[in-house]
Design a protein around this nucleic acid. Structure first.
Ligand SMILES: [Mn+2]
Ligand SMILES: [Mn+2]
Ligand SMILES: [Zn+2]
Ligand SMILES: [Zn+2]
Lengths: 143, 143
DNA sequence: TTCTTGACTTGGACAGAGTCCATCGTAGGA
DNA sequence: TCCTACGATGGACTCTGTCCAAGTCAAGAA
């Protein structure tokens, strides 16, 4: 992720302060921030960055395959910089915490041909749900 | 599904024309309508039903476990009356068609304890993605 | 180094999905 | 039949995301 900036430049992209800052906010492989959270953090580094630019930049990173869009609830999409290693998500129904998980086996393996209705099935997104340890132990659990 | 009305009454609910009509629209186990689609169809049967009532009624049915909320894209949630038989969804990336599918094995079985981080994991929602036969064969495929 | 230009950014308007609320209507029991 | 608490209504409001016209600037050319 730290060299995302380089890879972007390799695609012929102008390297602007805004793009650098968005990349910097996403750095670290284990975040799942909403666009507005990215905007809030980016604004601390570059106060006048606009919401539109954050949306644009995130969308570009997604197109490039450098970032993954995750929609675990019906709310805002989350942006996941851990695009190198395929994984699924485990979400706490109490507090919303999201963790990367790596199920065994191929996710598509469990779908028999008879259940594919002629589709060319290429991927499976799995959201596991449950309660995290602190939510399970009666702690209120903020969203 | 046809006796949803009865089960609702069993819960002590007033049976109003609006609730009857929403139940009627959802009847038939293989639909995945958005709230606004439900509203459009309900309006044909009861012209002055309001959007708020459709949202309220759908939400109540979900709380009761009679209907399932499905969020396969970042768009509107879909309401699935097939709540009796557990299943997953197969979505066409071209045209958005949704089909119920029944993978083999327990969905939770593939998540090792070591990957659960102490969570009490209770369910897994799987969205399989791919192209339906007509989208795969070059047909444009409207959304 | 300076010039040039098209890619990028900006803020605000707009749109889609959903929630909230004050008020009105009515299902169903007394 | 009458009462009233539960439910319906519609419009305002929130949240998330997209679009656009105008202004800015990164980076190659000279
Ligand atoms: Mn992730
Ligand atoms: Mn279904
Ligand atoms: Zn939790
Ligand atoms: Zn299709």
């Amino acid at each position: 992720m730290s060299d995302l900036v380089e890879r972007l430049r390799g695609q012929g992209w102008r390297m602007t302060a805004q793009r650098r800052v968005v990349a910097q906010v996403l750095d670290g492989d284990h975040t799942h921030l909403t666009a507005d959270e990215v905007h809030a953090r980016a604004s601390r580094l570059l106060p006048e960055i606009s919401r539109a630019t954050v949306y644009n930049t995130l969308g570009e990173m997604v197109s490039l395959g450098e970032v993954i869009e995750v929609a675990t609830d019906g709310r805002a999409k989350r942006y996941d910089p851990n695009a190198r290693r395929p994984h699924q998500h485990l979400v706490c129904s109490g507090c919303g915490t999201i963790r990367d998980v790596h199920p065994t086996g191929s996710p598509l393996g469990d779908l028999p041909v008879a259940e594919r209705f002629g589709f060319t099935v290429t991927e499976a997104d799995i959201t596991y749900r449950g309660l995290c340890p602190s939510c399970a132990s009666g702690a209120a659990g903020a969203a």
